[in-house]
Write a protein that binds this DNA or RNA. Structure first.
Lengths: 156, 156
DNA sequence: CTAGTTTAGACAATGTGGTTGTCCATATAG
DNA sequence: CTATATGGACAACCACATTGTCTAAACTAG
């Protein structure tokens, strides 16, 4: 099967599209009071989840060591996005939870993502955007939350 | 304008699709004799270009310091993908060029990307894939080679 | 031609985020 | 009760980025 577009354009466009959306998200988040958030943080917050988790479990979900997860938590704690509390049922565990500021950033992110998707729907047409999403769903794993991002994009 | 899909699914699917393709590329590159290449290296090789460049210019294109670019070049030189030579017209400059092994990896990457795109065309239909690419072109900047990847995905 | 400015590259010190290894306290299984 | 497994803290280390400094070479004015 022959093609009109060179094969390398597809992955680049996919990544550029991701980047365009994420850049817009963070520009808007900065305007709305969260200028220090980085693209990675959304994944970390998702990995923490609504009920909180532990550093060990967080490391597992993100695909990093528990120590690395612990350092992420430390810096996010300093920035006021998460807090650590004791687990009444297991004195070893310390539960990492999102603070009000953390959940606020998540709520704003969701709203901004919806707004950006609406922009796309206006530009492409709702049917084309739906088709694009259907096609991407077909070509990607079912579980949306593959959170093991840190380190995936290795450098020289 | 209302939507059926939550807004956050679109960027995640875009990224997952990119990742699926890149993972497949590198699995195949590893089978074909380039197991040490990482996703980042393709961007670096593109930034070096067919005629070679200098560490300073490479840093500019990749959006990193000249020192960081120099270290990338060092490690790629150790791996046999690039070589440094003098510039006969400017004794300060050292030209970084791809070696035969470097250009081989680029040629293989191009072929693998084409093969992956054919797979997508078979799965989605050539028309749907073409529409997808058209839509992505519409929503992304014209210049395909935004190479300033290192550091963009900041971590906590 | 010389003097001053700019540029490429090397070297050093530092910061951050990742790694492994060790250790202790607490739970859990037999 | 004892043995094992788990969560978390601490230390050492490594990879990769940063800034700052320095030298050599090349431009640019005069």
């Amino acid at each position: 099967m022959s093609s009109d577009a060179p094969g390398f354009e597809l992955p680049l466009r996919l990544f550029l599209a991701f980047r365009v959306i994420v850049d817009e998200l963070h520009a808007e988040l900065a305007r709305e009071g969260h200028p220090e958030l980085r693209p990675m943080h959304g994944f970390v917050f998702q990995a923490i989840g609504p009920h909180g988790t532990t550093a060990v479990e967080l490391g597992r979900r993100l695909g990093v060591s528990k120590q690395a997860a612990g350092k992420m938590v430390e810096s996010l704690e300093r920035a006021g996005y998460v807090e650590r509390g004791a687990d009444p049922r297991d004195a070893r565990r310390k539960i990492v939870r999102l603070t009000a500021r953390g959940t606020d950033s998540l709520a704003r992110s969701a709203a901004i993502f919806d707004r950006i998707r609406d922009d796309w729907a206006r530009s492409l047409g709702a049917d084309r955007l739906g088709a694009l999403e259907d096609d991407l769903r077909r070509m990607t794993p079912a579980d949306l939350w593959r959170l093991d991002m840190p380190g995936w994009f290795g450098t020289a």
